[in-house]
């Protein structure tokens, strides 16, 4: 369904995506896993054909660089944060994208109903909650009933309730046989949805594996989110990595993997460097523990 070969994207001297190759079979759900700056978002933009890159990507047998419009017709895209015009009403936004996708009005009504936004069509986009905006983005992505759904950290700005709603909807789409490519920094999501994980680091594809393999030796590992002052986040992430922790640093706190009996270790490391932890929470890992064999 998706065939990417030696994809490279450079920004000046920085290789945001460096010689990445992978295939996604029809009906598979593939997670892109990695820290901020690992190249997940850039790879998704290459996949959509909205930025120039070296290499070749085919979506449904269509060359993305040469026939981007045709390739994108097979893809429904959900961004990290819904980028609609805030002044637009929900119904107008749906109608606009429906006209671009040659979809009739009834389908808009049906999809708004299915994502739980029935009765919200007169609301302006700016008045929707984060979860509602993501559900609207999902409805837009589903307008033409595309075979491929591409999502860029769709739950990163959502609270637990909103996250569950989106993950549940994606599970349903996966059950229908949709091909899903999604970027995530949450193990629970990857284990709940992903058949495969592409682990990216500094633009390179480090591993192409399964979620169960990636975390099989980590049955006793938990993931916590630490909140520190924004200006100390980068230093904190570096220190924690030096301390042997896997860290995702995505602008919404630091997601740190810790051994179940070493949960205080990150706090000690940061305290020694005079970095104050304002708050912390454990990510809900019930689902992914359940998924581990």
């Amino acid at each position: 369904m998706i065939d990417a070969r030696t994809v490279t994207k450079r920004y000046a001297r920085l290789r945001a995506v460096d010689d990445v190759s992978f295939r996604v079979e029809p009906g598979q759900a593939v997670a892109l896993w990695g820290s901020n700056g690992a190249g997940k978002t850039t790879l998704i933009r290459c996949l959509l054909g909205v930025i120039r890159f070296r290499g070749m990507i085919e979506v449904g047998g269509v060359h993305v660089r040469r026939r981007g419009k045709r390739a994108r017709a097979n893809i429904g895209y959900v961004p990290q944060e819904l980028a609609f015009h805030d002044d637009m009403r929900v119904a107008a936004a749906m109608a606009f994208f429906a006209s671009l996708r040659s979809v009739n009005h009834d389908r808009c009504v049906l999809l708004l109903d299915r994502v739980g936004l029935a009765g919200q069509d007169r609301k302006r986009v700016r008045d929707l909650s984060g979860g509602m905006k993501q559900r609207l983005a999902l409805a837009v992505a589903m307008l033409p009933d595309p075979p491929i759904i591409v999502l860029d950290e769709p739950t990163s700005n959502l609270d637990a309730g909103g996250r569950d709603e989106v993950v549940s909807a994606l599970r349903d789409l996966k059950a229908e046989g949709k091909t899903i490519v999604f970027a995530s920094h949450r193990p629970d999501e990857v284990l709940a949805l992903g058949d495969r994980v592409l682990v990216m680091e500094r633009g390179r594809l480090e591993r192409d594996t399964t979620p169960q393999e990636l975390w099989s030796s980590a049955a006793d590992i938990r993931t916590m989110r630490l909140h520190v002052r924004a200006e100390t986040e980068a230093d904190a992430a570096r220190l924690l990595r030096q301390g042997g922790h896997a860290v995702n640093h995505n602008g919404h706190g630091l997601c740190v993997s810790v051994a179940r009996d070493q949960k205080a270790a990150p706090f000690r490391l940061l305290a020694n460097a005079d970095i104050h932890v304002r708050d912390f929470e454990f990510l809900e890992d019930v689902e992914w523990r359940g998924a581990t064999p």
Binding site: V62, K69, A73, D145
Partner: peptide, 22 residues
């Protein structure tokens, strides 16, 4: 999600060629 179950009743189209607007 309110439409979670209903979403699964959507027609599953796996055709690789979708309509492309003119």
């Amino acid at each position: 999600m309110a439409g979670g179950d209903a979403m699964s009743t959507m027609p599953a189209t796996l055709a690789t060629t979708q309509a492309c607007p003119t």
